[in-house]
Amino acid sequence: MKIRWKTACFLVVFILDIIFAKTMYLSYMDVKNSLFLPAGADEEAVDEVRRQFSGDKQIALTFDDGPHSVYTPRLLDGLRKRGVHATFFLLGENVEGKEAIVKQMDEDGHLIGNHGYSHVQMSKELVGTACQQIEQNNRKIEEITGVRPQYLRPPYGSWNEELECTTNMTVVLWNLDPLDWKSKNTKKVARYIVKHVEPGDIILLHDVYPSSVEAALEVIDTLTKQGYTFVTVDELLID
């Protein structure tokens, strides 16, 4: 009986220690996030301090093949609500008729890159043909946003040095691919990213699938709690 009583007391003390430690940690985070901020500091100042304290846990969400008439606006709404910026590599043939979505994307502060005019393997195309596709899409995006894309993601990641010299654009690939286009499973995609992500990762997703949009927002909510911040590709490369 005495042994059971001692065991019960030990468990109670152990649980109280955990609760106390968690309370102290949350209090520490509140103090840390408000450190060096004057009373009444605006939200931008608070966000900047939080970003500084997050260290180097920055990652970039990138989306290929859009825009989609339904799923891209849904994604933009979710990103806006969370205060997150992402990078979109647009297909020229999908931009046609969706100029308003691209304009909103730009106004929301996202980085817009070039994914070619159609989804072809550029390294197998003649240099002139591939560059014509890239330039056609650059002009289209610039007409909408007033900004000429500086970043290019070739479909399938297929590229060669000859094309790079001709286009004079920065080629951006990726280092974390959850194969969202293959599984089309929100939970599976989100779990894969959360499990394998590391600071500095460029994550490949596609905003033409509802499952990918839902997974992206779920990942943001989960990783934000783990101290990650989401930046555009240019911010990640500059840092």
Rank of each mutant, 00 (worst) to 15 (best):
K2H: 09
S54K: 13
P199H: 01
K225Y: 02
L37M: 05
V49T: 11
T87M: 04
V12W: 03
E43C: 09
G97D: 10
S34E: 09
E198V: 09
G78I: 09
M29N: 06
N33K: 05
M29L: 13
E44H: 02
W174Y: 05
V147F: 00
S69I: 06
V84C: 12
G97K: 07
P149I: 01
L163H: 11
V213Q: 12
T186D: 03
Q136C: 06
V13P: 05
A190P: 02
E107C: 05
D221W: 01
Y28V: 08
Y28P: 01
G146M: 07
G200L: 04
K124R: 15
E235M: 06
M29V: 11
G78P: 06
D17N: 11
E218C: 07
W174D: 04
V12S: 08
S54Q: 14
F53V: 14
E218Y: 01
L152P: 07
V233W: 12
D47M: 06
D64Y: 04
S27N: 15
P155K: 08
Y228V: 00
K187R: 14
W181L: 01
E96K: 10
A130D: 15
V46E: 13
R82H: 04
E93D: 12
A86R: 07
M105N: 00
D64Q: 11
Q121I: 08
P154I: 05
L90F: 13
D201R: 00
A41P: 03
L35Q: 11
K22Y: 14
I15R: 01
G157L: 02
E96T: 06
S211T: 11
G227H: 08
N33P: 03
K2S: 13
K184P: 02
E93Q: 06
D17P: 01
L76K: 05
D42F: 02
R80E: 06
W159Q: 09
G128V: 14
Q52V: 09
T62K: 00
M169C: 06
E125L: 13
L26E: 01
S211D: 03
V219L: 10
T129C: 02
C131K: 10
R74L: 00
H110F: 11
K184A: 01
V49Q: 12
I15Q: 11
Q58A: 12
V197E: 08
K182S: 10
F36S: 13
D108E: 15
E235W: 00
K195E: 15
P149A: 08
R153H: 11
M122R: 02
I220C: 02
L111G: 06
V231C: 10
D201Y: 02
T167Q: 08
F63E: 06
Y151K: 13
N94G: 09
C9E: 14
E107L: 07
E142L: 01
S118H: 00
E235Y: 08
R148T: 15
E164A: 04
D207T: 02
K81G: 05
M29P: 00
L76R: 10
T23G: 12
H85D: 09
L91S: 14
H68C: 01
L26T: 05
K188P: 03
K81N: 14
E48H: 02
K81W: 01
L176D: 00
I202Q: 12
F10I: 07
K188L: 12
Q52T: 04
V84I: 15
Q52Y: 05
H206N: 11
Q52C: 07
G113H: 03
K188R: 12
Q150A: 12
T62D: 14
